[in-house]
Design a binder for these strands. Structure first.
Length: 470
RNA sequence: GGCCCGUUCGUCUAUCGGUUAGGACAUCUGGUUUUCAACCAGGAAAGAGGGGUUCAACUCCCCUACGGGCUGCCA
């Protein structure tokens, strides 16, 4: 085991700024965050922007926003990998000086020709540079790349916390390029140098990097550096078992935010996707931090299931404090481009939150249940509600209204009055509910009639009732 | 092509050689109810296939099938 296990934990998330924060990347970030936060360690963020053609500042912003939404706060400054280019090159030169790397003068055309030929003959396409052991006096005066001298026999064992020990024969490793012919470092070098310099102890990343770990270990070994603890986690698939892509719907974190899923529910779902702690399904952030470990991560890819996400989100909404929920909903409205709430609406929403949050899985759903408190008089009933406001119903409402003028406006009194009124009419309260919903909310589906009256208050409730009865 | 990884109910998963293979989401049935949701009770539902090892295999080994990854002067 590496020396890293006895040091304070340092993890990092290292996305490429070529687009939004992919939901799979978000989970990788979450795992790193959870691991570090649960152990009093540090969670670092490094933007892998060495591919200048594809990297954009907009993408970096999108990634930062996605992480902010999910509450994944990182320690220290955001590090740009590109900024470290000189240091990366320095390491390559160090390796060159130590005879652990060499200058290769083969042109890309030559290499390509070799690979094409090898492929045609179904032979290994690993390129063996003829320059590995040539004397400097034989070097031509042309551009060259710097390649590492890969070990030629034996094997490399990746001790992975998720995948177990993975053995790769060294003859499967080629003398990979460290510095391009223009002198710039490649990614494979940059990650290793950065992870070492940042003192990263645990590398938790997608398993598409599993094989790369063996290549990267060549650099660690050549430099005499400690190898970090590896944890290569499986990717997330769409519901059909294929790699999660646009046709599955949302792939960007901000899309989930715009769809109105609460961040806490998202964290819970993403944490549980591919990781388990016995039978625990619903948990708080504090529990997640306490429980999260590498051993609990599964080895097979998991499919994204919106139904389960919603179920978990519903539970989180129900457990979140009213004021915090109101704040999150206001933020949701802003990012999803919907109309902002007026001060009165925000106030009403907060007042009604106690009964709204019990019955919504997403913010749009909650807002839909909240129309009664967000609307102003006069209330225009929708089609279904209108059916409950026929002549007979209006007559009943007209008769009922006076009974509500002198009651104490609390649940018990209201229930007593309405039930008594129903009884007097020779009917049951259930019959009254439809017209009352229509009058109070203009809808056929609403929260409890009593809750609405309580939230709206006596004056407003009576006004709406009179409006409808008129 | 070569190398590497994976495969338990529809889905996420538990199990770490001996269990009636457990839970959750979804689904079905019944109940409660003031609409919707929620809630309560119950049901159906799984070890990819084939060989070994063992008294005993979902669990260990091998092969096959299927899925995925790597094999760049991309990250």
């Amino acid at each position: 085991m590496s020396a890293a296990s006895s040091q304070p934990v340092v993890t990092r998330f290292a996305p490429s700024p070529t687009g939004y924060l992919h939901i799979g990347g978000a989970r990788t970030a979450l795992f790193n965050w959870l691991y570090a936060r649960g152990r009093g360690g540090k969670f670092l963020l490094r933007i892998e922007d060495t591919d200048r053609a594809r990297s954009t500042p907009e993408a970096t912003t999108a990634i930062l926003q996605g992480m902010a939404w999910l509450g994944l706060d990182h320690d220290g400054d955001v590090i740009s990998q590109f900024d470290g280019a000189a240091r990366h090159a320095e390491v390559a030169h160090e390796l060159l000086a130590a005879g652990k790397a060499y200058k290769c003068f083969s042109s890309q055309d030559e290499i390509q020709a070799f690979r094409d030929a090898a492929k045609a003959e179904s032979k290994s396409t690993l390129f063996h540079s003829p320059w590995r052991d040539t004397d400097a006096t034989d070097h031509p005066d042309v551009h060259y790349v710097v390649r590492i001298k890969a070990p030629q026999d034996g094997s490399t064992i990746i001790k992975d916390e998720v995948q177990g020990d993975v053995t790769i024969r060294n003859d499967q490793l080629d003398d990979m390029v460290l510095l391009r012919s223009d002198g710039t470092p490649v990614y494979m070098l940059a990650v290793v140098v950065d992870d070492h310099d940042m003192a990263v102890t645990h590398v938790i990343r997608g398993d598409d990097h599993l094989n790369n770990a063996a290549r990267q270990m060549m650099i660690y070994n050549a430099m005499g550096w400690d190898v970090p603890v590896w944890a290569h986690i499986p990717l997330i698939f769409g519901g059909d078992g294929k790699k999660l892509s646009k046709r599955h719907g949302a792939t960007g974190a901000e899309e989930y935010q715009a769809m109105g899923y609460p961040a806490a529910g998202m964290r819970n779902y993403l944490t549980r996707l591919g990781w388990s702690h016995g039978d625990d399904e619903f948990f708080t952030d504090a529990q997640a931090r306490d429980w999260f470990d590498l051993k609990g991560i599964g080895k097979s890819p998991a499919r994204f299931d919106f139904k389960k996400l919603e179920s978990l989100c519903g539970q989180h909404i129900a457990q979140t404090g009213d004021a915090a929920l109101q704040k999150e909903i206001i933020a949701y409205l802003a990012v999803s481009g919907k109309d902002a709430l007026s001060a009165a609406q925000a106030d009403g929403l907060l007042k009604g939150m106690y009964c709204l949050k019990e019955r919504a899985k997403t913010f749009p759903e909650l807002l839909d249940k909240a129309v009664f408190v967000l609307s102003q008089r006069p209330i225009t009933p929708d089609e279904k509600a209108a059916k409950n406001l026929g002549d007979v119903s209006r007559g009943i409402l007209k008769e009922l209204t006076p009974h509500l003028h002198n009651v104490t406006w609390d649940r018990d009194s209201l229930e007593a009055v309405l039930n008594g009124f129903a009884e007097a009419q020779g009917t049951k309260f259930g019959k009254l509910a439809g017209p009352l919903r229509a009058a109070l909310a203009g809808r056929a589906v609403t929260p409890s009639v009593f809750d609405m009256m309580l939230v709206l208050g006596q004056e407003e409730s009576l006004a709406r009732l009179s409006d409808a009865a008129a």
